[in-house]
Design a protein around this nucleic acid. Sequence first.
DNA 1: GAATAATCGACCAAATAATTCGAAAATTTT
DNA 2: AAAATTTTCGAATTATTTGGTCGATTATTC
Lengths: 193, 193
Amino acid sequence: MVNKEEFRKKIIITAGQIFSHYGFKKTTMDEIASALKMGKSSIYYYFKSKEEIFEAVVLYEANLLRNELTTTIKSVESPVEKIRNYVFVRMKSFEKLSNYYNAIFDKNLDHFEFIENIRAKYDREELAILRLLLYHGARKKVFNVTNSEYTALAVQTTLKGLEVPLFWKKKELHLEDRLNAILDVLFNGILKK
Amino acid sequence: MVNKEEFRKKIIITAGQIFSHYGFKKTTMDEIASALKMGKSSIYYYFKSKEEIFEAVVLYEANLLRNELTTTIKSVESPVEKIRNYVFVRMKSFEKLSNYYNAIFDKNLDHFEFIENIRAKYDREELAILRLLLYHGARKKVFNVTNSEYTALAVQTTLKGLEVPLFWKKKELHLEDRLNAILDVLFNGILKK
DNA sequence: GAATAATCGACCAAATAATTCGAAAATTTT
DNA sequence: AAAATTTTCGAATTATTTGGTCGATTATTC
């Protein structure tokens, strides 16, 4: 291969597709290998272990999510639409990611502290973004927010509450509906009128 | 439990959900058990083996499919719509079932001859239905079919061709589009004009 | 309170999967 | 073109998982 880094990326993408479907545990190195049309042992030339691949995949996906989120909020002007879009994209992505997380919430929590690190970092980033969005809306006299920091925290907590059913695989209650309901409440409690 | 048969059905349904997502091999007895909130060994009181559960699940799903198909074609009058609906429902179901089949096409073909039996029986049933639909359409002067038996076979072959990409998991090519295209060809080659 | 039905945890053998390793290809460098 | 390197691979090894068994235990029925 021309570039080793290039091929690592190819592995990450391929493995990511399988992980996202079957979760960490149920995905075998053999499957990843044969999806890449190579011998199982060859993969160990690029990654030290299955966990290392998983780590790389999560990192990669997390970055994709970050980019998607920022471009999304840039794509509209109105503060309401910015937040609405942000929340929607976030939910869609988490739905996709839920299999990764299900994989982790098995038992092996010990080994996967790196996930917690990514998570923590993202929580901070998200808080900053939300704060900005709220502040921006308040400036435009659309939101009635006095302390954007605390409000951002409240919104984030709400969003986390939405994640739970994804992890617990209880998708009976249509998520989109709940999402809209919550956004309605959020905006009607927040909007100047 | 009040009724043993009742509980077997519950197992079949629960196991079916897991099988349909992960396939036969990747689904463990432990998972089925804990989804039913019972010990793994208790399941063996109702079924002799994992394969026996799988067998029951496939049988159960096959019956569901049969019923869905017959009620679907009864729900519309026009011969064109009957066939169109039939094909659509059939495809949707196969998409759902593809995970079962993927599970089987691994290697364990030997043990799963019963699948082939179901399959054969269904092929015959399907042929009869298609023949009826074609005959019906010809009677109504909508189809231009001289020998409904041979035409039914041709249609069935076409439908089987559509299944292949489902088994091979190559869902890149949007199936619905191809389906419509094929139906168009089918009808325009078949319709009186 | 005996008899039967249903559940369970501990255990095991067999299968499966992750990882290692040395050697063979393939590629690049000299 | 041979030496050095990078990359791939099959076979072997080790670790883990998992389907299934069994005797004991708990609920239920008679």
